[in-house]
Amino acid sequence: MGGPMRQRLITLRQTIAVGQRFATGPVMGRFLMALREKTILAIRCPSCGRLQSPPREICAPCRVRNTEWVEVGPGGEMRMLEYVYYASPDPLSGETRETPYGAVGILLDGCRDEEVFWHLLNPADLDRVRMGIVIGDRVTRGSRLRPVWADARTGSISDIRYFELDEPPAPA
C-alpha cells in the first residue's frame, strides 16, 4: 500500500467551454428583428388578452397560440429591482460582471398586471430609482425608465444597453 491517505488524495482541474447557437423560432425572431429598429414588440393571447414581451409562442395558462402583435413602451415603470452586489459570470462572455449592477422588471407603457419586461438598469441610476411594489391591495408607483439603445444593433438582448431613469431630477 502507498503512504499516508493524504498523499493519495488528488483533485483534477478542468474547464469546459461550449460554443452554443440557439434557434430563436419565428416569434422570438420577429421580436429580436424589431429591436434593431428600436421597437419593442409584445404578443397578445387571443383568449385572456394578456401581453407577453419577450413574446412567447403560447399563452401557457390558456394553452393557446398567441397571434396578435402590438408595440409597447419603449418607456415604462420600474416594478422590480435586483440590486446585485454578487459578482456572477456574464453568461454571454464568461467574464465576471462589474458590480453592483441592477436587473429590473419594467411595466412598459401599454402593459399591465404581470406583463413585466426584464432587462438591466444603468448602473449610474442604481441609487436614484424607486421600485413600485404590490402589498395586498396597495400598489406603490415606481420610477419611470426609458431604454438606451446600442449604436450597433444585431437583433439580441444587447440591442438595448440598459434602461435609465426618465424623470426630472428631484428638487434639491
Partner: peptide
C-alpha cells in the same frame, strides 16, 4: 453553482439577466 443556475434561464433572453438563485425582492 451560480453559473449552473444561470443556464437554467431561457437562452434567448433570460440567461443574460438571471441572477442565479439570489434575489433581494
Amino acid at each position: 453553482t451560480t453559473g449552473g443556475i444561470t443556464n437554467m434561464a431561457d437562452p434567448l433572453w433570460g440567461r443574460q439577466l438571471q441572477t442565479g438563485a439570489l434575489t433581494g425582492m
